[in-house]
Amino acid sequence: MLRYIVRRILTMIPTLLVISLLVFVIIQLPPGDYLESYIAELQSQGESVDEQRIQFLREQYGLDQPMMLQYWFWLTGMLQGDFGYSFEYSLPVTEVVGDRLFLTVLISIATILFTWIIAFPIGIYSATHQYSWGDYGLSTLGFLGLATPNFLLALVMLYFANVYFGTSIGGLMDPEYIDAPWSWDKVVSVLEHLWIPVVVIGTAGTAGMIRRLRANLLDELQKQYVTTGRAKGLPPGRLLRKYPLRVALNFFVADIGNLLPAVISGAEIVAVVMSLPTTGPILLSALQSQDMYLAGSFLMFLAILTVFGVLISDILLAMLDPRIRLGGGTAR
């Protein structure tokens, strides 16, 4: 087990390296750099451009160096905890990101919990009551959830939340708490606002998970070992919990790996629509203005988050399933 975890962590290193390279290359792909967009912006506003200052900045940030070298500086800086400097905000990246990353993680975790809490009982009900009215009804709702675009749902929810609950439109907290230090009231305000983005982001994932859990559990319910359990004289509830659910749980945990990227990328668009103070809007603007270190670091944070999520799901899987824990690789 220990060996498995160590091996699994070691394989994360090349994965993250490749991701970092890809991220960097993608950010560099559009022609020009931040300074060029900065100059263009200054010129369009009719202001004069101080060539000397531009040149100074270019050297300061190493933008005149070859791309591979820039990548190297960025990579080694990150390893030392220095994620670079945001041109647009004139602040170190870590300071710009700060709370936003925390809120992104908060929303993601809340969304996953929401997905599970809703999907688990519904999936079980649908599977154990296959082709009943309840199953049909919940399936219909699930398909609706799957088919509705996130941003549309976001707009609809915003409207209704404002009209019926009086919650302010957009944001993740009431305006007076923005940039205020954390306090109990601020936490309450965040929680009041949190449910809308969580429902919006989580709906499609929940619907998908209900379908997958239902299909998985139906498969397991057909298996011979369930009949063996019945033949032993197990009561239905205990039988369901101990055997098919236990096996279907594997898939549930394995699905974290699927869920995380979907939740995070889904959150970006919704965040723009709902103007949430998460990483989404800032990432978009950073990409537009070619604020490369800010954008790159954001993408890296998200990649690390995803890779760790998958790691956790893999470790949980190994703990849950003896076939993975003990049989690893003994198959042909």
Partner: peptide, 15 residues
Amino acid sequence: SIVFQEPMTSLSPVH
């Protein structure tokens, strides 16, 4: 009690 044909699938794989 009963013994089934398929010993491969008659037992739960995770217990």
